[in-house]
Design a protein around this nucleic acid. Structure first.
Lengths: 186, 186
DNA sequence: TATTATTGTTTAATATATTAAACGTATTAA
DNA sequence: TTAATACGTTTAATATATTAAACAATAATA
């Protein structure tokens, strides 16, 4: 039986299967399980083993990671005026985040500005995530793990954010940068 | 038993548990399962049910979706000079992608340029993903679902990319934009 | 109607996961 | 050394998932 009902594996599977126009029997055949299994899973009367769930999802096909990260409903607000972004800055370093809310995203996009001499300090690893960015204007010294480099306009970085990292504006001019991170770091 | 060995649930769990400085017994206690269960799972000698895997992951804690999207190893190249980005453009619209490879990322960051009059046409829904961007320079008409708006410098958008969408530069000036998308759209 | 598919559901038999307790090993303290 | 503690592993008993086959309901066809 299942206490995964709150995650609603059954409803998700049913929805995904129907989106792909498959009957329980068709899916079962492709996946190499019985139709009874599909039925019981969709009713949340059993909690499938990971191995059988993977077999089932291969028959659709959808990755198990996508399966578990499916959103229930699409979003509504899609446009954000320049003055509608969420300002997070502290004076020296400012972050302007696309979308005003702090939850319900899988992707965080920031318009960052670094005053001359500003420094993020050293940040340690967060949850599993990746991030990257492109410098638009000015110069920025970026340290990632044991690597360091000064980036100028058009230069970019991309790394696994489990690595410790640090950003410093060592120039005389303000530095402007657009970055993205998934999942959001705050 | 398990044919999920190829996904290496065991190794992932073991790694995640150790990253959080938990012993099998400590994790078991937090999760409400026995230490034997943790041991068997980590050895890939059983394929846990989704419900018990969720219980275990709650003890860490990590979401099941993050768990399944964990990367195996950190990346190496983290800096990209302006001339090292992957040029994907076709003359009218150019994409400069952070990182030169087309696979092994969870996040796609693009520096986009739209010539006056250029148009992406209508793109239909892809895999589950979200995307957003910020206009740096120029003006861009963005259509998402049944909504349309002209965005200028500092303006932004963010949407569930299952919605059909379209970008057009209707101005006299080149438009410059940084966007991010997860997972990558190409 | 009846017939033939096709759908999702149910049930007893079987396979597998999970438990509870014991085991072996390594480390630390006395 | 001995005792005590903590670690991951193993095994028989138990709980649960999965199968195979029958069941019931709906729709299409003759």
């Amino acid at each position: 039986m299942s206490n995964s009902a709150d995650f609603n594996v059954g409803a998700r599977l049913s929805a995904v299967r129907k989106m792909n126009h498959l009957s329980q029997r068709e899916l079962a055949k492709r996946a190499g399980v019985t139709n009874g299994t599909i039925s019981l899973i969709e009713q949340n009367r059993v909690s499938p083993s990971v191995s059988s769930l993977r077999k089932v999802l291969k028959g659709i096909p959808i990755s198990i990671s996508d399966f578990f990260s499916l959103e229930e409903a699409p979003r509504q607000q899609v446009f954000f005026g320049a003055n509608e972004l969420l300002e997070i800055g502290d004076g020296r370093i400012s972050y302007r985040q696309v979308r005003r809310d702090l939850i319900g995203r899988t992707l965080q996009i920031l318009h960052e500005r670094y005053a001359p001499g500003s420094d993020t300090g050293r940040a340690m690893l967060r949850h599993q995530s990746e991030e990257g960015g492109i410098v638009i204007r000015g110069k920025l010294e970026v340290t990632i793990g044991d690597q360091r480099r000064v980036l100028g306009p058009g230069d970019a970085y991309y790394f696994d954010s489990r690595l410790p990292h640090r950003f410093r504006n060592i120039g005389e001019e303000e530095c402007e940068l657009v970055s993205a991170c998934t999942p959001p770091s705050f």
